[in-house]
Design a protein around this nucleic acid. Structure first.
Lengths: 332, 332
DNA sequence: GAGCATAATGTAACCGGTTACACTCCGCAA
DNA sequence: TTGCGGAGTGTAACCGGTTACATTATGCTC
């Protein structure tokens, strides 16, 4: 592989001149410029980025820590990150942590050894999690209220309230919940919104109406079983699932039990992934601006890297209630 | 940030000794080892990977070129790649090309500048595509027959034949196809299998039964329109969709037209993504070993990088026909 | 043509590691 | 005592760029 020395030899100038010709051409005379370009062409020179980055002590890459890359919502966030990174000359290093603390630690170690300049974390920050080291440039792209570092998010509590209010408006009073894992901050915030809505409507909470999944299709199917096995008079007339996948899984469980949606029971999701539009019936859900969350988080981490920012930011993007056919009026 | 010189100063040894203590401890005396470790701890030393990699002229990263990261099948392949890369000390650089030639070229340029050591391409190699430069370490993880470089794939022709044979066995003779774009090699191979099956059963092909989408849910919905608008006697009694997403989209289109699946019309998909199991009715489909495709491709590219291989490989992994409820016997 | 400002180029240090080679020290055999 | 071998360590070159500083070339004014 050719290097800058070879170019300088062929062009008959110094390496400094070659470097300048390529990075600051206005500082080099026309004549020399031509000699250099010809030489570059001749020896098929491509600058060695590793050398450049090393010299500049900048890796020009961002590490994205994602719990599960096959989750379509996360994938959308990553698209937003990637586009922004690309636009600013950064690469995206993928860290699929599979929800494993150990893998996450390994990836963070890579950042400490300067394989990348910053981190975008897609897992929400849990209460018990240690605060990341001060020197790390890190932003959470799917966070919750109270994240102890930079965070881009939606108002989970409010979004949850919006969807539960909608169900209450339709006349439902026994509203089931398919939550995520109990210690997941998204679960906690959305459950909070659920309880706020019930309280505002004067509905007493009933813990038997709350069940937990892990945000997968399968766990939604299982969760549906919790409700279908209940005696009909105890059964909720509407279900709020904390993501679309679990709602789609639950849809199948309800059908297996011969419950019609929304005639016998309503169900709402969260995220508004494409599949929510294509399920049968199409899901009422909360649209999260996944792409924008990624874009904003990437913007933010780039500013941290450039050193333009110091105060911790908490950016809240708007969500939207999407009404489709999976929710309907309560029938006596 | 501390560097090796600082460690050597604190430990009272040379940088060479520090380097050896960390990479080849058996070449250093116990006493010195302790001094070095203590110093590392004291100054919180983390080796600078950029320097190491630069010196070793090895980036320890693989570039994955993926047409669309939100596609669940691709995401699964990436998981296979990532696990293998991680296990071997490599990082994965994400290149979401959005099917843009220009973006792909940009990413390949990064490899030429040695930002990463190898490429895994998820887009199939098209007939007209230029053959990648000889010096690139590149493997295709979702290729087709005839890829002019290393390739890991399934037998698309055979898989397609398996699913069309199944439809024919169920008594169908008018079998529609929702293909991908006409120039996509997967479309070409799978269409080839379709025609082989028809020929073997003595069924004359009918070009009005073939329509094209772009592998998205929406295009499947549109494609369904092509068939539902046909007069009933010309309409196919079964449809083979070249991926699950289009099949799921089509499912909705068929329902909108009050066609019952599989009673009035059968439909089969391809890929066996999780959603295929959760659609209503659940999709008959071809299971592709996505994770293994990724794993094999990563293994292969690592061998290329290590220089262990020279001959071009064409690795074919097994597929499987998954029978579910979306296909049924043809009714007169 | 001298004097000076400015443009163009070259020299060499530097980024932070690794490693070939040289050197010292020590034990042991002759 | 001398010679030898091997273990342990240090010195300095090197990877491939960038850039501060020094030097030379060029153009302009008087």
């Amino acid at each position: 592989m050719s290097n800058i020395r070879e170019v300088s030899r062929v062009a008959g100038v110094s390496t400094a001149t070659v470097s300048r010709a390529l990075s600051t051409p206005d500082k080099v005379s026309e004549k020399t410029l031509k000699k250099v370009y010809d030489a570059v062409e001749k020896v098929q020179y491509r600058p060695n980025m590793m050398a450049q980055n090393f010299r500049a002590t900048r890796a020009w890459s961002l590490m994205v820590l994602v719990p599960d890359i096959t989750n379509r919502f996360f994938a959308t966030v990553i698209q937003g990150i990637e586009d922004t990174a690309q636009k600013n000359g950064y690469s995206v290093l993928l860290g699929d942590t599979r929800d494993s603390e150990q893998r996450e630690a390994e990836y963070i170690r890579r950042v400490e050894t300067r394989q990348s300049d910053g981190i975008i974390q897609l897992r929400p920050h849990h209460k018990g999690d240690p605060k990341p080291a001060e020197h790390l440039k890190i932003v959470n792209a799917c966070g919750c209220e109270g994240t102890p570092y930079d965070c881009v998010r939606i108002d989970n509590v409010g979004a949850s309230r919006a969807i539960v209010d909608h169900l209450i408006d339709m006349g439902h009073r026994r509203i089931g919940v398919i939550s995520g894992l109990a210690d997941n901050p998204h679960s906690i915030d959305r459950l909070k919104g659920y309880h706020q809505s019930l309280a505002a409507a004067g509905i007493a909470p009933d813990s038997s109406l709350i069940t937990h999944g892990d945000f997968t299709l399968w766990s939604g199917l299982q969760a549906a079983g919790h409700f279908t096995r209940m005696p009909a008079r105890h059964r909720p007339t509407a279900i709020f699932s904390m993501n679309d996948d679990m709602a789609i899984g639950a849809l199948q469980g309800l059908k297996n039990a011969s419950l019609r949606v929304p005639d016998d029971i309503s169900i709402a999701g969260f995220d508004d992934t494409e599949y929510a539009r294509f399920s049968d019936p199409a899901l009422t859900t909360i649209a999260q601006p996944g792409y924008d969350l990624g874009r904003c988080a990437a913007d933010r981490v780039l500013r941290l890297i450039e050193g333009d920012e110091d105060a911790t930011a908490d950016i809240v993007l708007p969500h939207e209630l999407i009404l489709r056919q999976s929710t309907g009026a309560h029938r006596k």
